[in-house]
Design a protein around this nucleic acid. Structure first.
Lengths: 224, 224
DNA sequence: GCAAAAGTGTTACGATTACACCCATGC
DNA sequence: GCATGGGTGTAATCGTAACACTTTTGC
């Protein structure tokens, strides 16, 4: 049986919160097509490699985030025929959520605020659309999962967690109600016993992520 | 540049509600591998064809549901190296939700209850896992979208819609609270002006789907 | 009349909101 | 002391769950 074969890439939407903005990891293209435009880090899969394995490998090779335990999940697969002008390329996309870390030391790999990527800079292929899907997935998942903590360092305060929600959603949240809700959610946060004054004011308790993956009840975005 | 190429299939999880059960469309394999086992309808993509286009084409060729306007959305992509014993095949999967219709007249294509497929019958490839993902997606989407109506005929009663929820979720719902909630949800249901006594008892209003895609507020499953 | 299913009213409860208020630190 | 942010208490409101009750048909 002879069947058509296509080239298959894995492309990564890697998000973090840094300097009060939601940022994505970008790769500045140094060859045609789309020379000089930003693209998402990614690459071709190998023939003996499962898709999540390829995503982890490319997170190392292209994003410079090796050995970082970050959340990775599959987004959509894009495959309309002319999305790459050279040949038929189908792309399986993955979403990664990372704490605020330096990216690769390569100048080609940079964190950029997603609003800048959406509004101003020239993008390669259909990567703006893929980025938008990743950002929307992240925004939605903060509501009903504990993934906001994936943007935080190992120990963090309730206010730092709240800032993640506020920055990703772009909305202000009441600090007092937020505190009550996240500390009351089952197995979301585990107190470390330490406190910090790094945010100023009265010392705040430090927490680490609990075992919960789903939030009961969910954190709902205002005005929806 | 030489890159590895893989064969790409689109496989379909097509669900309906018939005879009080949630059913999926199955294809009985007539050749090796997995001769005699059930599989999901699907097939290889063509080189000049977008993925959703291939899904629609296969819905016709393999599922026998041409010209039926059913909801179609992408599920995951599966690609671990040995999922097909013959060659590296990556499968992009789609979920389709259909009203209760006869499938193809081909004996090879049959509606089967999903609980039977999960528990008893021999499945080909990893199609049991794909089916499970489709069923879980459908169950989750009934909560916050208007997709339950995709299982109903063009005009339906509130009780018929409720039975869809009850069968897909496997839980009983209070008919009175359900009625209030769905008729109150913004643009979910539009009265046709007609009534029917096909369910017995007092005549029930007939509705068709409104323009809402998201439900505000959502329909929540009991006990979760 | 009686069974069956449609549809409405009502009350109790749980979660969310808005905001008053107190607490513990740095300076 | 005073500014800053951490954290608790409380009352109004909204949505839901449970269930009594009325309505309209077929037989």
């Amino acid at each position: 049986m002879s069947v058509p074969r296509v080239a298959l890439t894995v492309d990564l939407v890697v998000l973090t919160v840094r300097e009060q903005r939601l940022c994505a990891l970008t790769w500045k293209r140094d060859r045609d097509p789309y020379l000089g435009c930003w693209s998402l880090p990614g690459g071709f899969i190998q023939l003996d490699e499962d898709l999540p394995v390829a995503a982890v490998r490319l997170m190392d090779e292209r994003a410079g985030l090796a050995d970082v335990r970050i959340h990775l999940e599959q987004l959509s697969t894009f495959g309309y025929p002319d999305r790459d002008p050279r040949q038929r390329v189908v792309s399986v996309t993955y979403l990664g959520l990372a704490p605020n870390l330096p990216a690769s030391s390569r100048a080609q790999v940079l964190w950029k605020p997603v609003d800048v990527l959406f509004e101003r800079e020239e993008n390669a292929f259909d990567h703006r659309r893929i980025l938008r899907e990743g950002v929307e997935r992240a925004r939605a998942k903060l509501e009903y999962t504990s993934l906001a903590a994936a943007f935080c360092p190992p120990a963090f305060t309730v206010a730092e967690l709240r800032r993640v929600y506020e920055i990703v959603w772009g909305t202000a949240l009441d600090p007092r109600n937020f505190h009550r809700k996240v500390t009351g959610a089952d197995r979301f946060l585990v107190p470390t016993g330490d406190t910090t004054t790094r945010d100023g004011g009265r010392p705040a308790q430090l927490f680490r992520r609990g075992s919960a993956e789903q939030l009961h009840p969910p954190m709902l975005r205002p005005n929806t």
